Structures are given as structure tokens and as C-alpha cells.
Simulated assay, not measured.
Amino acid sequence: MQPQDIAKYIDHTALAADKTPQDILNLCQQAIAHQFCSVCINSAYIPLAKQALAQSAVRICTVVGFPLGASLSQVKAFEAQQAIAQGADEIDMVINVGWVKSQQWQDVEQDIATVLSACQGKTLKVILETCLLTKEEIIKVCEICKTLKVAFVKTSTGFSTGGATVEDVTLMKRIVGDEIGVKASGGIRDTATAIAMLNAGATRLGVSAGVAIVKGINTQENGY
């Protein structure tokens, strides 16, 4: 796989708190130029991105319950509804990690189902925050997501103690199979790492170093 072949898998991401409108416009211009799958942004910037991407095929992805996942399910659902109304094509939600750790599986499933219903057919990606979970917990959440038929399971927010690993992506892919996608995110900053994630079974990549990755340039960029 050549670096430029990775572009179609990339959610070109800018979620840090200090991103400005100009940063988002630059992100959109880069996404158009390199034909990335989407831009992943905070919901306040959806109207701006919608205007900037109006003549392109680049999708708009946003996050809900981000980055902790501990919001009320109804609040996450409202976030999703409002984001979609403003023009979001895809929703990345964070699960309630505390419920997972305490094995409140019915609550975990209901939380995801509530947001899935609010998406009304739009793509929903469920962020597990794998760095905080055991192998058994990752398996259980993936099984729930497979049952609910969400569009993707996703490794990480990029704002916790760690990001995507080949081991976690491989495990998630093994559980969900080809029925739903796997998004690897957090800490993917070079071409070799991106290819390793795709080879492990990822079908989408959440990265802020998208331009460097498709150009084959190593970067030490921090964050998502």
C-alpha cells in the first residue's frame, strides 16, 4: 500500500480545545485536496465546515459525549440530533467507561442504543477508550455494538492515557468481523503505523497528521 492510498480511510481530525475557525477551514481545504473520507470536528464548527465542504464529497464527522462519555444518554442523543440537523454525516460517541468497568451491561447497551436511535440512519461510531479497558471488556462492548448494528467500533478518543494499538484493533476486528467497521484513532502519526492499523483490520483511521501520513512524512505531532 502506498501512502496516498490511505487517504480514503482517513477522518481528518481537529478536536483540541484551541482549534480556531481558521484551523477548521485549513482542515477542510486539506481534506478536499487529499480526498480524505471526512473531517472530524467539534459540533460548534459544523456550519463552518458544511459551507467549506459544500462542493466536495468530504463528509462531516463530529463527536458526542466527548471525551469522557459520562454524560446522560439523553444529552448524548440531543447532541447527535443537533449535530445532524446542522449537517453532520457521522457521529462518534464515547461510551460510559465507568459502566463498563462495573459491568452494567444493560446500561451500556441502552446508552449506545439511545444515541443510535437519535442518529436516524446516520453513521454511528462507538468509542470504547480501549486504553482503559481489559481484553474481556473490549470483547463485551464489541459484542454489544455488533448486536445493535452500529456502523463502527472505535478504539480511542485520543485524549486519555493511550491511543490505538495493533493488538486492540486486531481483537476488535475479530469480534465484529465484516459486519461493522473498526476505526483506529489516537497516536497514529506516520505512514507505517497507519498501514499497520489497516492491516490489522481497521477500516477507518482517525488522525490529525493525515497530510503527513499520505505524503509519507514522519511527524512528532502530539494529540489526536
Rank of each mutant, 00 (worst) to 15 (best):
E143W: 00
F66G: 11
A77G: 08
T165G: 05
Q30T: 04
I138F: 00
A88P: 05
A85Y: 08
G223A: 06
D23N: 14
A85S: 14
F36S: 07
K149G: 01
G187L: 07
P47W: 03
Q81L: 07
G201I: 00
A14E: 08
K101M: 03
Q29S: 12
A118H: 11
E129Q: 14
K149D: 15
Q104W: 00
A88L: 01
L48H: 13
E109D: 02
D18C: 08
P3Y: 11
M172K: 11
C40M: 06
Y9V: 01
I24G: 10
K154I: 01
A17M: 05
D111L: 02
A33L: 08
E90I: 01
N42M: 07
V166C: 09
V97S: 03
S185A: 15
A31V: 00
V150P: 04
G210V: 01
V39R: 11
K215F: 00
F152C: 03
G216M: 05
S71E: 13
D178N: 15
D107M: 11
Q81K: 15
A80E: 12
F36V: 01
G216W: 03
H12Q: 09
F78K: 14
T157S: 15
T170C: 04
R189N: 10
D168G: 08
K173H: 10
K125R: 13
C142W: 04
